[in-house]
Design a protein around this nucleic acid. Sequence first.
DNA 1: CCACATCCATTCCATCAGGTTATGGAAGCA
DNA 2: TGCTTCCATAACCTGATGGAATGGATGTGG
Lengths: 295, 295
Amino acid sequence: MDVDIRLLRTFAAVAEEGSLTRAAERLFVSQPALTKQIRQLENRLGVPLFVRSRAGMTLTAAGRALAARAPGLLADWDAALRETRRTASRAERVLRVGYLASAANEATPRIVAEFTRRHPGWRVDMLHATWSDPTAGLGAGDVDAALLRLPFPGQERLRVAELSTEPRWVALPSAHPLADRAEIAFRELWDEPFVAAPAETGRWRDYWLAADEREGHPVRIGAVVDHPDDWLSAIANGYGVALAPESTARFYARPGIVYRPVSGVSPSRIGVGWAPEDDGNPVVRDFVRCCRENT
Amino acid sequence: MDVDIRLLRTFAAVAEEGSLTRAAERLFVSQPALTKQIRQLENRLGVPLFVRSRAGMTLTAAGRALAARAPGLLADWDAALRETRRTASRAERVLRVGYLASAANEATPRIVAEFTRRHPGWRVDMLHATWSDPTAGLGAGDVDAALLRLPFPGQERLRVAELSTEPRWVALPSAHPLADRAEIAFRELWDEPFVAAPAETGRWRDYWLAADEREGHPVRIGAVVDHPDDWLSAIANGYGVALAPESTARFYARPGIVYRPVSGVSPSRIGVGWAPEDDGNPVVRDFVRCCRENT
DNA sequence: CCACATCCATTCCATCAGGTTATGGAAGCA
DNA sequence: TGCTTCCATAACCTGATGGAATGGATGTGG
């Protein structure tokens, strides 16, 4: 009669979406998998949770009772796991720092060096995040701090200190007609296909498509990627262009790709983030201070 | 990074017992299974939770953090499942009643008939419990009410109304030297091997061994059984004798077994139990009233 | 001092649960 | 009638899980 947490997550997703098909997309599994999971949950509880119809999945009274509790249970559960991880890394004297490829730059080694100088015996683990998680593991509590690009979705629930800004440039295939220009106006890129981050990154994706600075002009998506290497390949292969912070030109120089300054887009901001629970954590505070003093 | 509830239960058991071996016994699985589960939990969290030694399993700091939260999480989880089931059975107009074989007697059909007369459209599901759960499913929230033998472990957390008492008799193999006596004094049975309920039923098991009424005389266990049929077989096969309520003599008459009155033991009490959450539930209250008025 | 008991870890194996793809069936819509 | 949109089912494959037997380390008692 034991029910897996995964089943509860599935249930919550289906209850929210009102549809197996849509929930399946959101959870990145096939629809039949959810059919089975929901039925399994119903069997283990001995209670029907949904009424099936062509219109979708509608909650029964019992389903509503469970749906009302599910978010709280899941949140408590995740909080307990986070707390456990935090305890562990403190006990081991390890500071876990997530970073987005594009947010780690020349300052990073200085920051880490300064931190370890101030905290002998401590180790800094730098954990590389994919673009599908713009919080670089902070949102899930996998890290104690993170070097990020602002803004990102979920920012309200975390603490963030802005460290620096950089102009945004554009990455182009070298064969691109604009590739030999010294500087490019953003409006000239409006009709170009763009290489974008996965859709679930929401606001972050929009920011890098500069969706707000197109004066209503629609975005064309040429490819969706999740990782710097794929990003570079997609651009080199001519699937599209992409905005990128200036430092990317130095860190990800590659044959087949050129980087050019862009006018008419706001600069990118780099920040360091941490969880509100760590406001009083001297180690995290010190790491943030090192970030501030070394950028 | 999703962690199964089962792993948390395992973890809680191991943390409490301080030993894989003992926890394995308690959970009715093999010790290697727990070795694997604990390791899996540690891997998924990326955090060591125990320090292994020949003395057993000792919690690390992170392990203590998780152990502190685990009971609450598990309790919330179980409460949510209970609530969901309760909602379902109310919506379906089904009253689920658990019963111990020995607690259902001649009154039961009258109770159910009276209840369905007062609640047309409702159905009563009678669910038979094994002796390893003297709460007949109430403790786990599987039923809305239960017909029980008092006292039983966990009684404090439930509501109970006593319905009637019955003298306790003894069930003997027909070949037993005492089998042709009209009545037996309990002290004559002190040295007999007894057929007992599983050890995890604690107080309930002790009650049926009349452990308190032996004036310190130790109990001899001849067999452990979980089900009326096994119980009858064990007695008929001469593995031991057992106390039983008088009505058992009528419900479980069988060749090879005789029932005899016993003097010197307290009578057995039958009760109806329900969950405190249902104090305000008119259907459950009515069922309890039907029990009271029909015994 | 050696046999023994007590722990946890490891290995091997059988089983089952979970996922995927492909397909079916029902119902609204044009 | 054909198309789309739901969920259910079937067939298949992989990997996780649990059990039995065994190993290794470490105290303990005669």
